[in-house]
Design a protein around this nucleic acid. Structure first.
Lengths: 132, 132
DNA sequence: ATAGATGCAAAGAGTTTGCATAGGT
DNA sequence: ACCTATGCAAACTCTTTGCATCTAT
């Protein structure tokens, strides 16, 4: 990660500009708009480099392949809408969960995913076409 | 899912007897103790059948391939050891998390994964050979 | 000019599927 | 005997790696 290439710039920009975590495939599609002929291998190599670099971070949801978002955000969780499947950031946190672990176990961290209806997909919300 | 075969019995027993969720590979290894020559394809086919049957359920941890445990257990969460990577059940639960979601969002469920050291891998624990 | 970065294609890892055969019922 | 389930191997999907070429510095 020593040179600035059009590919690297486009890949980083794709993630930085998205308002939600993107899959490698989505990154490829978005970045290809800026760099024609961009290859998937380059996307993966840069995702890895940007991760190590600390510029982006992986969002791992249960049963989902990883998505990527810009790093530097404070500790947060995610909410996945059961209707539109979009993922949103949740900045609240239940806090220390050591008390939940079995005796003898040491809790160092946690991942929390909330499921339900986002504001757009909540039934009583004002009618609005379903986003994907 | 209409016949009782040695393979199906062994696969179901492996999951039922384990006190933690097992990966397909672990299921294969365990069930092979009972059925020599058991193939991975059979494990996958039976996992799928048992899932549809409702006998077992998938445990999806962030960034991990699925593991399986017997179904019908009450709501619970999981703990993954950062050293031995094994997964354990956590029967405690932080409870209602509606308060964490953004305004206008409706929480219907949640997934929680704790990370840390299991009893075997906690440093201060009485010396014990490291399990894998 | 030099060495890191890219693109393509091949290689891996994990899971699924096709097909002939074994084995429950 | 019939027909589902199995085992093997090939197919698939997603991700990583080898290698010749390109390009930022």
């Amino acid at each position: 990660m020593e040179r600035f290439t059009r590919q690297r710039t486009a890949i980083h920009a794709a993630i930085a500009c998205a308002e939600r975590p993107l899959s490698p495939q989505e990154v490829l599609e978005t970045a290809r708009a800026a760099v024609d002929g961009l290859g998937m291998a380059t996307v993966y190599r840069n995702l890895k480099a940007l991760l190590e670099d600390g510029s982006i971070q992986a969002v791992q949801l249960p049963g989902e392949s990883p998505r990527y978002e810009t790093a530097g955000q404070s500790h947060h969780h995610h909410f996945q809408c059961t209707r539109c499947t979009r993922v949103f950031d949740v900045h609240a946190c239940p806090g220390d969960l050591q008390g939940l672990a079995p005796n003898g176990f040491t809790v160092e961290g946690h991942e929390l995913t909330l499921y339900g209806r986002c504001a757009d997909c909540t039934p009583k919300a004002s009618a609005r076409s379903a986003p994907r």
